[in-house]
Amino acid sequence: MDSFWSVIFSTDFAFSVLRVTTPILLAALGALISNKAGIVNIGMEGTMLTGALTGVIVSAYTGSAWVGLLGAVMSGILLSAVLAYFTLKIKTHIILGGIAINMFASGGTVFILYMVSGDKGTSTSLQSKVLPNLHIPLLQDIPVLGPILSGHNVLTYISLLAVAGVYYLLKRTPLGLQLRSVGENPQAAQSVGISVVKIQTIALLLSGFFASLGGAFMSMGYLSLFTRDMTAGRGWIAIAAEALGGGSTVGTFVASLIFGATNAMANALQILKIPSELVATFPYAATVIGLLVYAIAETRRKKKKNS
């Protein structure tokens, strides 16, 4: 038991929680934005994967990690634009649209990888770039906090800033207000001249933006190359984190950290011979329980109102 706690309370562990949380958090913020506008984008996994591959390819061809990141983001936005066109314009069911995005990405990325590199498994033959890690002066010298918070990939810092940004966007900006109004009462939004389709399109594009950032982190930060199916379900975890977070920015952040921590704990648990596979299911079970509690409360509330 001692060894377990010594691992959990090490700065290395806290560091790795933040690292593992980064892609989940970024995608979860994306899921949050689209859900707030009343559309469930389950294409997060596919969008992440596409972003991861595009980042690698573009950075390899331009020699710049930053241009690669830009490429990744553009690919995520483009994919979401396709989804928006089909679901908002020609009314493909949003869930099926999301499934299509995921199907496209899971095979499509391998297809493109093969076309570009001649390999179906990894992008080792491509000289792709990695986004830098930042050592923050002053902060890195503080004991305990320094080793935890300093030295992360730039996207990890961006993901933390994004939490504040999304919070501000949803709570304090005109776009955020309109976005939430569209999700909550589209007729009300329409009656004051807000275009529901336009706002939902923006929301989908933003969700694609964040998902692809998460994907870029996977291939240009977490690892330094693309491997087939490398997001390994993180897009779905992000959707779960958003649900567990109860649709609030802070909640989504905390839930993402929980998922990140359970992922990071896997190693610590191996030491103790506690099966990490089972521990990994806890956050999902928590999400189901959370949804159930919420649904029961809703049912009660409605009943009360009627009697």
Binding site: W236, E277, T281, L291, L292, A295
Partner: peptide, 27 residues
Amino acid sequence: IMKAKWNADVLVTSLMFNSILAGIGLY
């Protein structure tokens, strides 16, 4: 049952169950 009784969203719960079952199976 969660859907029938309390109108809990089947899409999200079923997706969560997929992940839970995958974890249990792997274990």
